[in-house]
Amino acid sequence: MTEQIELFVNDEEHFITVDTSEMLVDVLRDRLGLKGAKIGCDRGVCGACTVLVNGDPTASCSTFAWRVDGARIVTIEGLAGEEGALDPVQQAFFEAGALQCGYCTPGMILLAKSLLARNPHPDRAEITDWMGANICRCTGYKMIIDAVEIAAATGEGQ
């Protein structure tokens, strides 16, 4: 069974015919060529596939594409500004070196974006709690938490 849906991905409008069994991550990666969202556990646990759906961090591996018909979706490719200027959260991860293999990084950055949109000045405990939603097997998290603190301090989300 198929369905016609409309997605606003990184401010671009797409009309796509999807199979009702198709996952959002596959539409993004295979139909739209947005490879930044990664499949890790494929069970909505690890968060490597995190994208923002109407501002909410969402496991795109476990979200049917038809469920987000009409939604505004932000992927990692949608963050950098003109001429490749990094978004403040990207910049903070870049400066803090808050990444290793990089597989979780797009999801972590989008998760942090969603925190700062809700709470522009989280304390360290709030950051830790929020970032505890996604798995990073490489960094030990501390430098990721540092990066979110830097992003908050530079006024992201205001």
């Binding site: 490879k35 950098a80 990094l86 991860f93 990444l99």
Partner: peptide, 19 residues
């Protein structure tokens, strides 16, 4: 100094075998 792979990895441009 920033990591050499940092820019590609924070922008989602880094390519892995899965890609």
């Amino acid at each position: 100094a920033p990591r050499k792979d940092a820019r590609e990895k924070v922008t989602g441009a880094a390519r892995y075998t899965v890609d």
